[in-house]
């Protein structure tokens, strides 16, 4: 990447349909801006996020991945976010071991009423990724042009 060009990170956000996706909708209808670098994928529940999806994202050149779900105790499916929390804790520590800094991955609980939290979380996450710079650790060289 040329030095003078501003770093535009690629950020994938997995949002559960019941809380966080609705929170993102509320951020939108409330016009609470966050950088366009964040692209949201809708999943029924945070527990639907397979660690494989996150590895895939990093492999394909993502600079950060964030998983958003309902607050603990508020999961639409009762227990899904607990599974997500455990799986991601495990995955993130392994990712760190292979060189994907902890700051590049995050789990955040955002309810349908928390448009403000969604926006501030995304602003904060993008700032963090920008400070970390481009992710080069896991990128599949075959995916680069």
């Amino acid at each position: 990447m040329p030095m003078n060009e501003e770093f535009k990170p690629k950020i994938v956000a997995f949002c559960c349909n019941w809380c966080s996706y609705a929170g993102a909708d509320l951020a939108g209808s409330s016009r609470l801006a966050y950088p366009a670098d964040v692209k949201i994928i809708r999943v029924p529940c945070s527990c639907r996020v397979n660690p494989m999806f996150i590895l895939r994202a990093f492999e394909k050149g993502a600079d950060g991945v964030i998983i958003c779900g309902c607050h603990p105790g508020d999961c639409h499916y009762s227990t899904g976010n607990y599974y997500a929390r455990r799986r991601m804790a495990m995955l993130f520590s392994m990712l760190e071991y292979i060189g994907i800094e902890n700051g590049r991955t995050r789990v955040e609980w955002v309810s349908a009423a928390e448009g403000v939290k969604f926006s501030t979380t995304m602003n904060d996450f993008v700032a963090k990724i920008k400070s970390l710079g481009e992710n080069v650790r896991l990128g599949d060289i075959r995916c680069k042009n």
Binding site: R48, G80, Y83
Partner: peptide
Amino acid sequence: CGACTVTCPSGAMDLQGFSNRQI
């Protein structure tokens, strides 16, 4: 919800409408 799809060690379980391949 899809909890089973991620838990399955052999990747046998998938969720219709939100399949592994789709995501």
